[in-house]
Amino acid sequence: MSFKVLEHTADFIVKANGKTLEELFSETMRGMFEAIGPQFESDKKIKRDIKISSIDLKALLVDFLSEALYQSDVNNEAYFEANFKKLTETELEAELIGRKIDSFEEEIKAVTHHRLKLEKKNNKWVAEVLFDI
């Protein structure tokens, strides 16, 4: 597992890493969904295509997670993998892979930019994202 969930007074933080930027984005998303305890309804895999553009790489990560959260909320799904067709400093196109859920144990209100970290350290990409719950 290449993510962990850290605590914050009224929120929580997901700290993730990846050998590539793609892996980092995918792992941060997996950490986000694992942290809120999805109760899966079915084993059937579901795919959702998403396309995002943002002002910079940090904002792109927040917007990517916000999009996954939006898709999850309106479709009652949780995603555990993202395959990227494109990922630049300001744009991405990806396919989210997940399953239908009954519910989550927690509700995320939003992905925030607060204390956001995204950097390459010792040949590894690392990120820390704070969620409002």
Partner: peptide, 22 residues
């Protein structure tokens, strides 16, 4: 979420410099 995203993209144009993006 929608409006934080929209405003972040315009801060430079409005010459607003913030200590925290939120």
């Amino acid at each position: 979420t929608d409006y934080v995203r929209l405003m972040l993209g315009k801060l430079r144009e409005w010459k607003i410099d913030l200590p925290d993006r939120e």
